[in-house]
Amino acid sequence: MTMRFVLAALLFAGTAQASEDTADKYPASVLYNKPYEVIPGVFSAIGATAPPTYENSGHNNNLSFIVTGDGVVVINGGAAYSLAKALHDEIRAVTDQPVKLVFNENGQGHAVLGNNYWTEQGIPVVAHQDAADEVEENGASILEGMKRYNRDKAEGTEVQGPTVTFEDEYIVDMGDFHIEARYLGPAHSPGDIVIWLPDQSMVISGDMAFHERMLPIFADTYTADWLETWDAEFEPLNATYVIPGHGHPTNMAQVRRYTKDYLEYLRGKVGELIEEGGGLAEAYYVDQSPYAHLDTFEELATKNAGRVFEQMEFE
C-alpha cells in the first residue's frame, strides 16, 4: 500500500458518514468491525459510534495494534474478555509475531475490561496511574454495567487493572517502531493517554480527540482543562494521521473540529447564558445545532450543556 493511497484513504475517512444505526459490521466476530491497516504496520478495528449495546458487544471505541517486526503492541484491552480474544484472533490472522504489550488509553470499561484476557497470556498491561486508580475504585461497578448490556458476551470477564503504571510517559522501542505513550494532561477522563508514533507522524489519540460522534462530558470532565491540554500538548504534535478514540482514522483538522471547536462553541454558548442571568434549566436548551449531525447527539447534547453550565458557574 503506497503512502499516497493511505493519505487518500484517510482523507476519505475524514468525510465518510458513520452511522450509529448499524448494529454490527462484522457478523463473523464479536468485534463490530474487522481491523484494517491504516498505515503500514498500524491496524485498527473501528468501533460503533453508538453507545455500548449487546448488538455491538461494547465495541464502541477503536481497538488498535502495531505490528512492529519484533512483536505486537495493542492499544486498548477491550470492553470484555470476548472482545480481547476476538482482537487477538485477528492479530494472529495478520502476523505470527507475539503480542508483547497492551496499553489502556484510560480507565473506562471499553479500554480495560478485557485486560484479564491479556494478563492470562502473560502480557503486561500498561496505563497511567490515574487510570489504574479508576479501575481499582470503580472496576466492580464498571463490570456490572457491562454485564447488564452484554449478558452472555460478558462471560470470562473479570476486573483486572494494569500491571504497569506511569505518570508522564512510557517509551518503547520495538522492531521498526519508536512508541511513546504520553500523558498530556487533564482531558476527557482520568488517565487519558495518547500513543505517539513520531517516525510515522501518527497519534492514536484515545479520548483526547473525537470524530463522527459527539463527545460525552462526564461529571469529572473539566472542559477548561481539556482545552488547555489540547492547546499546550496535543495540537503541537502536528500529527499527519490521527486514530481517534471514536470514529474513523482522520487528520488533526477533523478532530479539532469535533473536539476543541465543539468544546469552545458549547462553553461560549453557556457563557453567554450565564452573563444573561440564565440558569441550569435554560442551559439544557442552548443551541447546539451545528453539531446535530453527529452520532450520539440525541443522547448527549443536553447532558453536555448541563455539565458545562455547572462547571462554568464556579469558574
Score class of each variant (00 low, 15 high):
Ile274Glu: 03
Gly279Ser: 02
Glu272His: 13
Val255Met: 07
Ile274Trp: 01
Lys269Ile: 02
Glu276Arg: 13
Glu264Ile: 14
Tyr284His: 13
Glu275Gln: 13
Glu276Trp: 03
Glu276Phe: 08
Gly271Trp: 05
Gly279Phe: 01
Glu276Gly: 05
Gly271Phe: 03
Leu263Met: 11
Gly277Trp: 04
Val255Thr: 03
Gly278Trp: 10
Ala281Gly: 07
Glu275Ile: 05
Leu273Gln: 04
Leu280Arg: 08
Lys269Leu: 05
Leu280Lys: 09
Asn251Gly: 09
Glu264Tyr: 08
Asn251Gln: 10
Glu275Met: 12
Ala281Lys: 05
Ala281Pro: 01
Lys269Val: 02
Val255Trp: 12
Leu263Val: 10
Leu263Cys: 09
Gly277Lys: 03
Ala283His: 00
Gly277Met: 01
Asp261Arg: 09
Gln254Glu: 15
Lys269His: 01
Tyr265His: 14
Tyr284Phe: 14
Ala253Cys: 11
Asp261Gly: 05
Ile274Asp: 06
Ile274Thr: 01
Gly278Ser: 08
Lys260Asn: 09
Arg256Thr: 15
Gly278Asn: 10
Tyr262Met: 14
Arg257Val: 02
Val255Asp: 06
Gly271Arg: 04
Lys269Met: 06
Glu272Arg: 15
Ala253Ser: 12
Tyr265Ser: 02
Gly279Ile: 00
Arg257Gln: 14
Met252Ser: 06
Glu275Tyr: 03
Tyr262Asp: 02
Tyr265Lys: 03
Arg256Ala: 06
Gly268Cys: 10
